[in-house]
Amino acid sequence: MTTLNRRDFMTSAVAAGAALGAPGIVHAQGKVTVGMAWPGMQDAVWSTSHKLLNEFAAASDTEIELVFTAADMDVAKQASDANDLISRGVDLLLVFPIDSKAISSSVKRARDAGIPTMAFLRQVHAEAKHQADVFVGIDAKYQQLSSARTVFEKMKADGAAIGEVLWVSGDIRDENSRLRGVGLQEACDEHGASIAQDLVGNWDPQQAAAALAPALKAYPDINHISVASDVMMSGVRQVMQDAGKWAPHGDPNHVYLSSVDVFPIGLELLRSKHLDADTIFDVTGMCRTAVELMPRLAAGETFDSDVLIQGPVFTPDNVDDPEMQSQLWAT
């Protein structure tokens, strides 16, 4: 089992960036004012990250003031909010982009005003003209890769045949979903497996079920299903129960399942041993890192690489370890 140590990796990634960065001007005052251009508060990730950022900021050695704005998922409103924050004269603009391309113009405006930008969770699109000064996000590729790899290794240990995998993806237009697919492909390559079929679940249990049902008939011998997010697991469970393939690890009928995110249903299924590996969507780590980087970015430090957080893999064996439990946020 090669669960990557999240802390070690993070530190190294940040160090790499810092090494390449130019020495910045030390900020005159101790206080850093950070303008947050957030999509809203309705989604769990948005509200949790807002809460955790405030907690970490409060605990930080540097005095950090967060100025929050919410755009209600409206691209134009997010641009207005960013303008407002720039007008206010914040030291740093922290954006959670609604649209990865449209945010580029806000980055430009901030830069024109001499304000550095940090993109959070969603990167400014690679083709966009103006890139954020630093991106703090989740290593989506690593998520699926680590979870699928853990399952393959477990299969190997169990002596199960490794062959084809069914892939239940998220939204095809979503970069996260695409990267997770790439991660799965890499894990397959490592273990000589292949993806039998690409099923679009659209992050929705019903749609995942609708896509999976015919595929299960077409591939009756499939023994590994990788799901892009465990939010879709209820649909997967329904279909597998109908097909008589819903059984915990140890049962001859067991189909190996790897997934990502560790939402409550993921935890439940890990404990019941139906789900074999689930890599956390590490909002906590991301927020901690973002806050750590804030004073440095405000002081003029530059970063040449993205800061991608790699959360730990939850398995039925480690799910109730106190250290793992402390990483949970979506419960």
Binding site: D72, M73, D74, V75, A76, K77, A79, D99, K101, A102, S104, S105, K108, A128, K129
Partner: peptide, 18 residues
């Protein structure tokens, strides 16, 4: 106006809340 301001045209430039 919006396309120029955002530098891109998207499918949801203005949302229902607006």
């Amino acid at each position: 106006i919006l396309t120029a301001d955002l530098g891109t045209a998207t499918t949801a430039m203005v949302r229902d809340v607006r």
